[in-house]
Every structure is written in structure tokens, then in C-alpha cells.
Write a protein that binds this DNA or RNA. Structure first.
Length: 424
RNA sequence: GGAGAGUUGGCCGAGAGGCUGAAGGCGCUCCCCUGCUAAGGGAGUAUGGGUUUUAUCGCCCAUCGAGGGUUCGAAUCCCUCACUCUCCGCCA
């Protein structure tokens, strides 16, 4: 959620900034709502004040043993009037909240203009694109060998867009996850957490998935409403919901492995083949909670932490700065890391690292006590995939294949593979 | 799943319809005092919101697990829900 004060003082600026995302913001509707809100809130509070002071007077009169009937007659009319005002106020406040919760974050100055992923800006490339003296297979063909990766079985057990991994490939994915967790905890200073994979609506509202993106979620229960997490970002960032953090405890850095569940309604037709876009996938997420002045620097570092995994695995990748039109709802600035997939001869997203500044923190009421002001102030939140494990598995398979369709185990993963050097 | 007991400020804990946003204690901050330390004295110490933006001051509103209700008036009475603890059952 954006700062309501910004709307009251810089309405034109807000509209202009939201335009960069092609978000159509209607300042007239906002101003009208805000004017009514003010009007009704002031009126309601005046009535409440009147009721409170009258009631107090009755209490005092009664204590003195005076006749309170005249006073009671005086407040008679207040009840209905106040109730009507309160109803009207809560009505307009929920309209206001609905409006505000549907507005995306403002973009950082450094984010380039653009409409789609085609306008994203390439920042850097790393690694050698492998050359093969044979036609490289994609992960689906490689996985079909020994039924190590079985999409039909996934469909039988669940539905389309689920997969079953068997034997060494299942272990390889686990090895990838282990490498990521170990690297982030022992080299990058993150603290490992284990969290619920079902979350309530408040948590999803806090990180920005609700109310706007319910269609992307799997709802697992109705009363109370519980949803399968689309990313560990949700439960992990909600650790600090409604918390005032001691200044000395910042930054907080969490790493968390979890399965992720995405309904991706409407996404059918894209990436139908293989493990690129699944309803369920494994991911290691890194999350930072920082002082506002530190978030830009933290964003760079967090992205480097994700890159470090690709470097350890010697997977070629490029780093993209997302353009205005491709940057997510809650983010001010996002770097995507795209790994090279020989099977598709293209770069594909494997990590997304975002700085949300105070957008999530405001929804979460996640604050820290600023020693300079002595007051609670909003923190900044950041997160990134470090990395998506399913897609990392694909990348390892495709980049480390040989002419016979076998897969060499990258050096960094060997300690986790129990002596295995080659799969297939 | 069954039975019972709880949920009050950073923490402990009083309060049982009316000058209670909440006694008292602990902690913390500032000041005074005392060779040092310890002890002592004094003051302050929730959060959100409104009041044409911000800051100061003031005034006002809301909040005693959450949401409804009764009442002129609710931390206090009633209802619903959530969570915590204890015992029993069942399990990993």
C-alpha cells in the first residue's frame, strides 16, 4: 500500500508515476472519496465526543445523587445519529481501503520505461554458453530416460502441470536445495527458517497477493480461509507483521526452502512443455528486512547472493533490470536472473529479486524503532529467489548433458550426491 | 475429538458498568544526590487515526485477543469466533 499522505499532497505525481506502469488511476474518484471520508469522519468523531462528554456528565451527576433524567433526554437523539454516521464512515473507509489495496507500488527512479519483457534492460552476462558437438536435448527428453522425470505420472496422480521425479533426479533436486541453503546460511549470513505452507488471508494481504491476485492461488480451506503459499515470501515476510523491531536487530535475513503452489489461471498455453511452469515447485527464498536507508544497497547484495548460486553451479546467466511494465505489483525495482537453457537456446527466468521498500511494510505494519526519532517507522522489505530449485534442476540437466543423454554432476553438487558423478 | 482455565501496556499484574488509556511493580530514558560501585529521590515512558501537508503544541476519536450486541455510558454484562494452557483420547 502506498502512503495515503502522498495522495493528499502529491496527487498529480502519483498519477504520473502510476502511468509508467500503465495503471489507470482516477484522481477525481480518489479526491471525491477522500473529501467524503474527511467530512464523515469529522462528523462522526464530533458525535462521539458529544456522547462521551454527556455520558461522563451523567456519571458525575449520578454520583452526586442528582436527577439525571433531563440529561438522559438530551442524549436521546444521539444514538441513531451516531450509528448512521459510523455505518457511513466504515462504508467509505472500506471503499477507500479497496481502492488503495488495488494500487501498485511506485517504481524506483532507475527503472526503465517499457511495456513488456521485451523492454527489460540487460545489466550483465556471466559464464560461457556451452557448445555441443551434438544437438542438445531439452530437459523433457533428458528426463524421459529411465523415467527420471515423469509428467504423465504427475498428471495421473494430480493433474496436468505436476511432475514426479525419480531416483537420481529427485536426489539432484534435493542436492540443489541443500547447496543453496548451506551457501546462504554459512556464506551470506541468512538464518534458516521453516514456516507454514498454508497461510491465512491476512498474510497474503500483507505481502500483496490479496485482494488482487486470488485467482493465482490455490485455496485449501474455507473456514478459516487458508491458501497454499505461492512463495515462501508470504509466510517469511509475515514473521514481522505487526512487530516493532529493535534497531539493533536489523537487518533481519531469512532463508527458507519451501514448495510453492501456483494456480496460474489463464497461463495455459504458455510453457506447456516440461517443468518450466508447474502448479507445484521447490524454491529457496531469501528475505531481508532492513532500515529504509539501507534497502537499495541490500537489493544489490541480495541479488548477488542469488547470483552466487549460479556461479557455483557454473550456469551461464544474464541479469535483467525489469522495465516499468514488467515489474511486479508490490515491487519498486526488480532484477531477474535468467539462466541459459541449451534445450531452448534461450535465457529463462530462474530468480526474481525485488525491493518493495515500505509497500509491504505498510500493509504488514512492520516497523522498527528509529533511535533518532524514538518513533516506530516502517521498515523496507526485500526478497529474491535464491533460486527456483525446479528450474535450476532443468538448467543443470540441459547444461551438463552429454551426447548420450547423460548428465554430469556439477562439482558444487558432488558432496550432496553420495559419490555419484553422472546420471544416466 | 472431550472437559476445564485463561487472553489487560515492553514484561508482570490490579481493575468486576461511570473523572480508568487503564492502580502497583519490573524494565527503559532523563534529572538530582552520593569518592567508585551499590542503594536512594524526582520526572517521563502504548499504538493508530482525525484536526487543510510536515514539525511543535493543543484538542478530539479509536484500541484492554477479534467481531457483534445490551446501555446515556463497557476492560467490566451478553453472544460468536480465534488463540494459549491443563487433563483425557488419538496420533508422526
Amino acid at each position: 500500500m502506498l502512503d495515503p499522505r502522498l495522495f493528499r499532497t502529491e496527487l498529480d505525481f502519483v498519477k504520473e508515476q502510476l502511468n509508467r506502469r500503465s495503471f489507470d488511476f482516477n484522481p477525481e474518484y480518489y479526491s471525491e472519496l477522500e473529501a467524503r471520508r474527511k467530512d464523515i469522519q469529522v462528523k462522526t468523531q464530533e458525535l462521539q465526543n458529544e456522547r462521551n462528554s454527556s455520558s461522563k456528565a451523567i456519571g458525575i451527576a449520578k454520583a452526586k445523587g442528582e436527577d439525571v433524567q433531563p440529561l438522559l433526554d438530551q442524549v436521546q437523539h444521539l444514538g441513531d445519529e451516531l450509528k448512521a454516521a459510523e455505518t457511513e464512515l466504515s462504508d467509505i473507509q472500506s471503499k477507500m481501503t479497496a481502492l488503495m489495496e488495488g494500487i501498485p507500488n511506485l517504481l524506483d527512479q532507475s527503472v526503465p520505461n517499457g511495456k513488456s519483457e521485451d523492454d527489460n534492460l540487460e545489466i550483465s552476462r556471466w559464464g560461457e554458453i556451452p557448445s555441443f558437438d551434438f544437438e542438445p536435448k531439452d530437459h523433457v527428453d533428458l528426463g524421459a530416460i529411465n523415467k527420471g522425470m515423469d509428467f504423465e505420472l504427475g498428471a495421473k496422480i494430480a493433474s496436468a502441470r505436476f511432475v514426479v521425479l525419480n531416483g537420481p533426479l529427485a536426489r539432484l533436486q534435493r542436492a540443489i536445495i541443500q547447496l543453496m541453503l548451506d551457501t546462504h546460511t554459512s556464506e551470506h549470513g541468512y538464518s534458516e527458517t521453516y514456516v507454514p505452507f498454508l497461510v491465512n488471508a491476512d498474510s497474503l494481504r500483507g505481502t500483496g497477493q490479496l485482494p488482487k491476485f486470488e485467482a493465482d492461488l490455490f485455496k485449501a480451506n474455507d473456514d478459516p480461509a487458508l491458501y497454499l503459499i505461492p512463495t515462501a515470501e508470504v509466510p517469511v515476510t509475515n514473521i514481522v507483521r505487526d512487530v516493532i523491531i529493535d534497531a539493533k536487530d536489523l537487518p533481519l535475513k531469512f532463508v527458507c526452502h519451501s514448495p510453492c503452489f501456483r494456480s496460474e489461471a489463464g497461463a495455459y498455453g504458455r510453457d506447456v512443455r516440461g517443468m518450466i511452469r508447474q502448479h507445484q515447485f521447490e524454491k529457496v527464498e531469501i528475505v531481508q528486512i532492513v532500515r529504509p536507508e539501507d534497502s537499495a544497497q541490500a537489493h544489490e547484495e541480495l541479488t548477488h547472493h542469488a547470483e552466487a548460486i549460479l556461479k557455483k553451479l557454473k550456469l551461464p546467466y544474464r541479469k535483467m533490470l525489469l522495465c516499468a511494465g514488467d515489474t511486479g505489483f508490490s515491487s519498486t525495482k526488480t532484477y531477474d536472473l535468467e539462466v541459459w537453457l541449451p534445450g531452448q537456446a534461450t535465457y529463462r527466468e530462474i530468480s526474481s529479486c525485488s525491493n518493495f521498500k515500505d509497500f509491504q511494510a505498510r500493509r504488514l505494519q512492520a516497523r522498527w524503532r528509529n533511535p533518532e526519532t524514538g518513533k516506530p517507522e516502517l521498515v523496507h522489505t526485500l526478497n529474491g529467489s535464491g533460486l527456483a530449485a525446479g528450474r535450476t534442476l532443468i538448467a543443470v540437466m540441459e547444461n551438463y548433458q552429454d551426447a548420450e543423454g547423460r548428465i554430469r554432476i556439477p562439482e558444487a553438487l558432488k558432496p550432496y550426491m553420495g559419490g555419484l558423478e553422472v546420471i544416466g
